[in-house]
Design a protein around this nucleic acid. Structure first.
Lengths: 145, 145
DNA sequence: CAGTTATTTTGAATGATTCAAAAAAGCGCT
DNA sequence: AGCGCTTTTTTGAATCATTCAAAATAACTG
């Protein structure tokens, strides 16, 4: 399916900013609106940041992209949708990676006491150190030892 | 231990805004800085919002409170610290409740493939409907049927 | 109680996002 | 191809939560 077809199927008009945004989000990643804007501007100079916000909002609504937020940082957008994957955020450099939920029905996702809530979804965010930052931390601790 | 002692033990000076904030956060809940400010202002008129931000930052640093963020909403502060509990957010009204992690070592919290990340912590946020909103949704669907 | 340092106040700045009105462009129809 | 309606983009401004900075004040030390 072409990008144009994807847009039409979602009931969205085919416009240059939308095609450019789809292109930017084609490769895996977790970009902020600002980052998407910068990349879109490369192939489509003159595009406004506002347009990118509009496009991303429409895409999120149409579930062409997923919008996620990590503590203390702006919303991020990713093209991997339709599965229930989670994320690791590196506390060193802020890098983000996807994490598949290994267990379909994880015990911790069906708590015994939910205070009367009817649960619909679980969002899991891991905190950790990416390979590079972990290596840097190792060197650090060796140096100070 | 008195509130004053708690502050001293954390290496913090004992001041009126801090004592008032401890008092506000004594009962369980998940308040925004603004909400803490409003409650503090009741017992200690003239306190600035800025002071509350300062106090909450110091408390977070000293681990007297825990600072959490839910998608699309400002930071919230809670007094329950030192355990690894999680949260449900009602998608209807925004109410927040605590969730104990039923499984000490939940499988989904130790993914097989972490993209080379060294994981240190998992933050789980459930989305759901609180009892009131679930009941309202039920009535809604009955009415439209 | 005087000196030092932490904290509070006051006022302003910032960053990310949203709102609003006018201009432009896409799409369906003839 | 062209017309008209509707969506989208542009432009510019507003908003919210939070942080920054300097001066005034208050807490702890000896």
């Amino acid at each position: 399916m072409t990008d144009s077809e994807r847009l039409q199927q979602a009931g969205l008009r085919v416009t240059a900013p939308r095609l450019a945004t789809l292109e930017v989000l084609r490769e895996p990643g977790h970009l902020t609106a600002e980052e998407v804007y910068q990349r879109v501007a490369e192939t489509l100079p003159g595009t406004s940041l506002q347009a990118v916000y509009n496009v991303l909002a429409a895409f999120t609504e149409a579930e062409l992209v997923r919008r996620v937020e990590f503590p203390g940082s702006p919303w991020r957008y990713e093209s991997r949708v339709g599965d229930n994957h989670h994320h690791v955020v590196c506390s060193g450099c802020g890098a983000v990676a996807d994490i598949d939920c290994v267990v379909g029905h994880a015990p911790c996702l069906t708590p015994s006491d939910a205070s009367g809530f009817v649960l619909t979804r679980a969002e899991v965010t891991f905190e950790g150190l990416c390979a590079a930052c972990a290596a840097a931390a190792d060197r650090e601790s060796l140096a100070s030892a």
